Simulated assay, not measured.
Amino acid sequence: MATAVAAVGPRDGANTWTVGNDVVLRTQNGEEVSGCVFAFDRQTNLLVIKENGSHSGVSNIRLIKASSIGEVLSSKQPEKPFDLELPHVDLERCRKREEKALQQAEMESARVGTGVTKEAQAIFDALVKTMPCVWRNKAIVVLDSVFVEEPYTPDNCRSDNEHAATRERVKMVLRHERDRLGL
């Protein structure tokens, strides 16, 4: 049996959220949200929407502050009673997703130079697409053997003699990328 819950709405003062209703709403910043009303917490003024996930059997739970809802575009009661049972959460899978996301964030943050110009970052971003690169202070280190120093031109590439061929390859790629970037 569906339960009706009154919510303080964004403009009109009172909307009715019925658990189990399929809703489509627009937030005040223009984002359209659709899903099933899972719950409404009067104390925190939070609406819980259960959205379809990216593939079958997966759901996303979204918490929305009712005061951030600009308008309710539609609300339909379910044909059959809403199942109030919480969906299964695979904690191990959540842990692995979190770990993967943290690793990805660390990798992406390592690709951002500290105290470098936008031009230097653009050169790094272009180089890293074709060769492994890391920042070492303000120098770009390519393939662990070639250093590209400010102002990041082919003339500012250095390596030991053992890696001369790699240095020449980096110079060629750097020249091409600088031309492509209009530098």
Rank of each mutant, 00 (worst) to 15 (best):
T3Q: 13
T3W: 15
V5Q: 09
A6D: 07
A6K: 14
A6P: 09
V8Y: 04
P10Q: 13
D12P: 03
G13R: 04
A14T: 14
T18L: 07
T18V: 15
V19W: 03
G20K: 00
N21A: 04
V23L: 06
V24L: 12
T27C: 08
T27M: 11
N29C: 04
N29P: 03
N29E: 00
N29Q: 15
G30D: 00
G30P: 04
E31L: 01
E31T: 08
S34K: 15
G35Q: 06
F38P: 04
A39W: 08
A39G: 12
T44H: 09
L47H: 06
I49D: 04
G53M: 10
S59C: 12
I64D: 02
A66S: 10
S68H: 10
G70M: 00
G70P: 01
E71T: 12
V72W: 07
E79H: 13
K80H: 14
P81T: 09
H88M: 11
H88V: 15
R93I: 03
C94L: 01
R95G: 01
Q103F: 00
Q103E: 06
E108V: 02
S109H: 06
A110W: 08
A110Q: 09
R111L: 10
V116Q: 13
E119T: 14
Q121I: 04
I123V: 05
D125F: 05
V128P: 08
W135N: 02
R136Y: 02
N137W: 11
N137F: 13
K138L: 06
I140Q: 01
I140L: 02
V142S: 06
D144I: 07
S145F: 09
S145E: 11
V146G: 14
V146K: 13
F147S: 10
Y152N: 12
R158S: 14
S159W: 05
N161I: 14
H163C: 03
A165Y: 13
E168A: 15
V170W: 03
R175M: 05
R175P: 07
R175Q: 14
R178H: 06
L181W: 01
G182Y: 00
